[in-house]
């Protein structure tokens, strides 16, 4: 077992995951540096969500290693991983998934209370984060009375309220319109930068990936250097999903991670490219 590089908060090596026999990740390696915003981009079905679930300890890879701050996540028991998620990680789903019985501020305060915080201390913290995300007026409303963009912002506040080490955002802006999309993402990245939170952002939208410090591209469960889509000016929805992705190793990747391992994964990436052309 090789010890991971010291400056990486999260580090994964040669992850292999199959969902019921069909391969989802085949030999993906990457490192996430402390405090950076890393975009994991790629079309639908390229294994972004699976990668995020592996990194956050929700899913154990069949092969490969995941290290968080020099502790091995892949060997932890389910209870330890659960505590790790609760104490160190935040998670944002594509859908808000708020608890419908609780008001907005109670939803935001829930992670604090799950960590054992008291009602008295959780309330002002939740209120403060709602104010910061411009939805302080909705604090007493239940999710059914909120707009979808407001709900998603509540979900972002819920992930930020504990100021975790890493936030995993799985297509956090998928159900939103473009204006809301930019706003939600800007608030997330600003808050993350000001609090030194590392963000791993899965997105199929190249525009959103451009907001990140660094981008990692997945294609069919493999890591590739860059993906040239046939028509980048086209609206971002159907283009990547059509899967007519052409990858070339000649393009300049915006900084390949140090843990990225130029050996096997690149070769596999090339194999994927030649297949997909």
């Amino acid at each position: 077992m090789v010890a991971p590089p010291d400056n990486d908060v999260l580090w994964a090596r040669a992850l292999h995951v199959t969902h019921n026999g069909s391969p989802a990740l085949t030999g993906v390696s990457l490192g996430v540096r402390e405090g950076e915003i890393l975009a994991v981009s790629g079309p639908r079905g390229s294994g972004k969500t699976t990668l995020l679930r592996c990194l956050s300890g929700q899913l154990l890879p069949q092969q490969g290693e995941v290290w968080f701050n020099s502790s091995p996540v892949h060997t932890m028991g389910p209870l330890v991983r659960e505590r790790l998620r609760r104490d160190r990680f935040g998670w944002i789903d594509p859908e808000p998934h708020l608890v419908p019985e609780l008001t907005a501020w109670e939803n935001v305060a829930l992670p604090l209370m799950l960590r054992g915080g008291s009602h008295r201390s959780a309330k002002p913290a939740a209120q403060e984060w709602l104010e910061r995300l411009d939805i302080g007026g909705c604090a007493r409303k239940r999710p059914h009375a909120l707009l979808q963009a407001e709900r998603q912002r509540v979900a972002v506040a819920r992930a930020l309220v504990t100021t975790p080490s890493v936030i995993f955002a799985d297509e956090p802006t998928a159900p939103l319109h473009r204006a809301d999309r930019a706003h939600v993402l800007r608030t997330l990245t600003t808050a993350a930068r000001s609090h030194g939170i590392t963000v791993v952002l899965a997105t199929h939208d190249p525009e959103l990936a451009a907001l990140a410090d660094r981008a990692v591209t997945l294609l069919d469960g493999r890591r590739v250097k860059t993906v040239h889509l046939p028509d980048t000016d086209a609206p971002p929805g159907p283009g990547p999903a059509a899967g007519a992705a052409r990858a070339s190793e000649a393009g300049t990747a915006p900084g390949a991670g140090p843990g990225a391992g130029p050996g096997p994964s690149d070769a596999e990436g090339r194999a994927a490219c030649s297949l997909s052309v």
């Binding site: 929700q58 209870l79 659960e82 505590r83 790790l84 998620r85 609760r86 104490d87 990680f89 998670w91 789903d93 998934h97 708020l98 608890v99 419908p100 829930l110 992670p111 799950l114 819920r158």
Partner: peptide, 12 residues
């Protein structure tokens, strides 16, 4: 659904 979301949050 809600239970699954709570478990993803790390609710024991």
């Amino acid at each position: 659904d809600t239970t699954a979301a709570l478990l993803r949050l790390g609710a024991p």
